[in-house]
Design a protein around this nucleic acid. Structure first.
Length: 619
RNA sequence: GCCGAUGUGGCUCAGUGGUAGAGCACUCGAUUCGUAAUCGAGCGGUCGCGGGUUCAAAUCCCGCCAUCGGCUCCA
């Protein structure tokens, strides 16, 4: 393969074959690992800020860092920027680049910096200056007319920026200091690279990501829908999507049965009082769907019902329904429980952030002595599940409380014990983790498993939480060996996290190409002509009897069309049935992964399907 | 919730003040066909919803809803 393949013009023929032979990828350096890119992006963002202030003299600059794929700059501007403005800004930037203005670093004293900022009347910069620790203060100039506080680094002149290797992408509102109560600024996102080829590759990857987007694929593959009359963030699962869901559910249920979990079912609503005991009402009332009350009097007294935002208070009631002995512990109550959370409208998106979703929830009631062992077992289950789903790209986060916030329930002692337990378990497992301060649940710290979607946004799937607080609030007890009443510890855990979110991530991870055992339709028989229909139907019923999800294409179209449709539907195993196959009691197998496999006798096909189904392997 | 963009048959999209279009899908007919699209005909939309301006609105204005990109939030 030529080193310079990207400079070869793509022929029309190649373009046609794109979906089968994607062009070779070129290396895109990570900003965090590339000094040249950091410089380029820092300087490009300064050039953008200079251009903006030239075109919009009233705009004030605030901060403008590099980010993984580019940079942004936040402006306080009386008029929001539009996409037209972006074009004008880009034009102005190219002018600045062509002038090859020197980028000059200057060190000044704090007092001098303050004096200069006051001279140009940019109050945000004063706040930024106040946050900069240590002296001297560094200032970067673009030529003589523009400067900003900046730690650098930068390229040497604006001419070092390739005018064909950057792009202004989008405008967005962003709060000053990320604080909702502060002024909303106008953020312009841009991307900048070393070469036009890198920019082109970056754009290509963005398009590729769009092709993998679970919202697009979910529609194309007919897995789920959203319906306006039902409401935002409330997915409806079609037959195919439901098969996928059930397959995942059944898989986990089996794994849990092997590990001594006890299935339970609890209602979708409960008294507000229940959520008052758990603390949900006080802490998260605004994030729950509004209370249902019979009349205004009941509403006033808060005597109504609420849709459950979590399953724990319900499972706790089952635990509490009898006097428990230490012999019963650990008690692992498990349920695919659907919960409802009134997420802010602007936060909803596809399956990754919804208002109604199903948690593969379990609450483990354990003695303090059992906590460590049980916690390790849970993490082991989670990792087993991820392995089965071929999910490798995740990070484990120790989600601890932020001592500065007061949204947490329970004593410091309980929190310290729980955080210690989680940290210790992670160390025992040798699990690489990072710490997320302020990411804890309100009742306890968590070990979270974080995944990325196609657009590189991060989402939490699996979670394990150690909780000393709800047992306290609900006054849970068990009778210990010595006959005394003791308080159990709870572990909340969900390997999938949310079935909806998991499926969203899976769709993107597989780009819609589900492994055989998960594919909603696993085998489609493609009759060459009408005469083969009876044979095809007979074979399909044999497959169905094995628990293989098979169907016949009865559309009557030509074989080429049937194959095309099966490919588009991403069906893992296609089976061509013509006169020859009927004659030989065979099937011509074509898989998405391996292409044509030729004719295989029906009994052998059935056996291979059975194995693939039970072993979770390819056909 | 906030900032910006978008919303036209089931799907993807064209249509910028003057009688709503295409391709795919669907239905019917012809074709009986061997590894990524057979041909033809037909059906299908009060242009997201509600107001307004105008002789006339998919198109201009206002409000709402939904979706998308961010921000904030995420038990």
């Amino acid at each position: 393969m030529s080193q310079h393949f990207w400079s070869c013009p793509m022929s029309a023929e190649n373009a046609e074959n794109n979906e089968q032979n994607p062009p070779e990828k070129i290396h895109l350096p990570k900003t965090s690992a590339s000094e040249p890119l950091k410089k380029i992006r820092h300087t490009t963002s300064h050039i953008m800020a200079m251009a903006v202030q030239k075109l919009f003299p009233k705009a004030q600059v605030t901060i403008g860092p590099w980010i993984e794929n580019g940079f942004y700059y936040d402006f306080d501007s009386p008029e929001p920027f539009t996409e037209k403005d972006l074009k004008a800004i880009k034009k102005e930037m190219v002018k600045i680049i062509k002038r090859k203005l020197p980028v000059i670093r200057e060190e000044v004293t704090r007092e001098e910096a303050e004096r200069r900022i006051k001279a140009i009347n940019e109050p945000y910069k004063l706040e930024i200056l106040a946050d900069i620790k240590g002296d001297p203060i560094t200032i970067y100039h673009l030529g003589e007319a523009w400067w900003d506080l900046c730690a650098g680094p930068h390229v040497e002149t604006t001419g070092d920026i390739n005018p064909d290797a950057f792009e202004l992408e989008t405008v967005a509102g962003a709060y000053w200091r990320g604080d909702e109560t502060k002024a909303q600024l106008q953020r312009i996102y841009g991307t900048a690279w070393e070469s036009p080829e890198q920019l082109a590759e970056y754009k290509r990857r963005k398009e590729e990501a769009l092709r993998r987007d679970h919202r697009k694929l979910g529609k194309e593959l007919g897995l789920f829908i959203f319906a306006d009359p039902v409401g935002p963030g409330l997915p409806l699962w079609t037959p195919k999507g439901t098969v996928l869901r059930s397959t995942l559910e059944d898989f986990l249920k089996q794994e849990q049965l092997k590990r001594g979990y006890l299935p339970v079912v609890t209602p979708h609503i409960g008294r507000v009082d229940l959520f008052k005991i758990s603390g949900h009402w006080q802490n998260y009332k605004e994030d729950m769907f509004p209370m249902m009350a019979e009349d205004d009097a009941a509403r006033l007294l808060e005597q109504g019902f609420a849709l459950k935002p979590m399953n724990c208070p319900f499972h706790i009631q089952i635990y509490k329904s009898e006097l428990r002995s230490y012999r019963e512990l650990p008690m692992r109550l498990a349920e695919f429980g659907t919960v409802y959370r009134y997420e802010q409208s602007g936060e909803l998106g596809g399956l990754t952030r919804v208002r109604g979703f199903t948690v593969d929830d379990s609450h483990l009631f354990v003695t303090p002595d059992q906590l460590e062992d049980e916690f390790l077992k849970v993490v082991d289950l989670i990792l087993t599940v991820f392995k089965s789903l071929q999910l490798k790209n995740f990070r484990a986060r120790l989600s601890f409380r932020d001592p500065a916030l007061d949204k947490y329930i329970g004593s410091d002692d309980a929190w310290n014990k729980a955080e210690f337990a989680i940290r210790k378990a992670a160390e025992t497992l040798g699990l690489p983790t990072f710490e997320g301060v302020g990411e804890a649940a309100f009742y306890g710290p968590k070990l979270d498993f974080i995944f990325q979607d196609a657009l590189e946004r991060e989402w939490q799937l699996g979670t394990v939480q150690v909780d000393y607080n709800l047992p306290e609030r609900f006054e849970l007890e068990y009778v210990a060996e010595d006959g005394t009443r003791q308080r159990p510890v709870m572990i909340h855990r969900a390997p999938f996290g949310s079935l909806e979110r998991l499926i969203g991530i899976l769709i993107e991870e597989y780009a819609g190409d589900f492994p055989f055992w998960l594919a909603p339709v696993q085998v489609r028989l493609l009759p060459v002509g009408e005469e083969q229909l009876p044979f095809a139907r007979e074979v399909v019923s044999k497959m169905l009897a094995l628990g293989v999800r098979a169907e016949v294409d009865t559309s009557g179209d030509r074989l080429g069309k049937l194959i095309r449709n099966a490919e588009k539907d991403k069906i893992p195993v296609m089976s061509v049935v013509g006169a020859k196959e009927v004659e030989a009691n065979a099937l011509s197998i074509r898989t998405r992964a391996a292409g044509e496999l030729g004719a295989i006798a029906v009994p052998e096909v059935l056996e291979r399907l059975r194995i693939a189904q039970t072993e979770h392997t390819d056909f």
